[in-house]
């Protein structure tokens, strides 16, 4: 993987993660993540919309003058979201009932318009598609982690209801790690979403800070070792 592509994935997954750093699309992020499966479902849907939008926008980028670029992007995004909503209703019916309004609301997730405008409209299709996948995966991972933490703290399970999303074979993925009566209810309530996300942001920041200091300390040690030798 060449450096430019590696940079794309590093941006999407870590350095400019939509959920952790750009803080875009927080409404679905906070509202849906009461369980890991809900997070995974919305994450996959958002990932598909992001990748397909980036690809479509990049392919059509020479067709639209700057004045009408934004309306054109909005049409593309709305069309793709409606498409995915219809397909989910037809083939993942239970899950689409559970995620309810949040699938249509992917339209309003500003990550998608932001990537279309800031990246895909200036890049060739392959790079735009890859950026969409990277950003979408980054967002999906945060949804899953946030959903998983809240589900575990709130009701003591992980991946409960996985069969709704992945088919009946996935029923075995559901784990109960502690009795439901130990559940910490706050985690499932809206304040719990903010608090858990805040903790995740803090963790991300702490790791970034450490990484910034780490290379310096490493060279210092190396120097020390060199002089010692």
């Amino acid at each position: 993987m060449n450096p430019a592509r590696r940079q794309l994935w590093r941006q999407g997954l870590w350095e400019a993660n939509p959920g952790l750093v750009q803080l875009l699309g927080l409404c679905p992020l906070l509202a849906v993540t009461t369980s890991a499966v809900n997070g995974l479902g919305l994450g996959i849907a958002t990932l598909l919309v992001l990748a397909m939008t980036n690809l479509a926008v990049s392919l059509l980028r020479h067709q639209f003058r700057p004045e009408i670029r934004i309306p054109a992007f909005v049409i593309i995004i709305a069309t793709l979201v409606t498409l995915i909503d219809l397909l989910m209703q037809a083939w993942l019916h239970e899950l689409s009932v559970r995620l309810g309004i949040f699938i249509p609301l992917i339209v309003t997730n500003c990550t998608i318009l932001a990537r279309a405008e800031a990246f895909a409209s200036r890049q060739p299709p392959s790079r735009a598609l890859e950026d969409g996948l990277a950003q979408g995966l980054g967002f999906a991972l945060i949804l899953i982690v946030l959903g998983g933490v809240r589900e575990l703290l709130g009701q003591g399970t992980l991946m409960a209801g996985a069969d709704l999303l992945l088919g009946s074979w996935a029923a075995g993925l559901s784990l109960r790690l502690m009795p439901e009566s130990w559940g910490f209810l706050l985690a499932l309530l809206p304040p719990g979403a903010f608090i858990t996300l805040g903790l995740l942001l803090a963790l991300h920041q702490a790791i970034v800070q450490r990484q910034k200091q780490h290379p310096a300390s490493l060279t210092a040690t190396e120097k020390f070792q060199e002089t010692d030798a």
Binding site: L60, Q63, F64, R65, E67, I68, P71, A72, I75, I76
Partner: peptide
């Protein structure tokens, strides 16, 4: 410039 938009729609 509006024509492509109409076509897209």
């Amino acid at each position: 410039s509006v024509l492509p938009l109409a076509g897209l729609g």
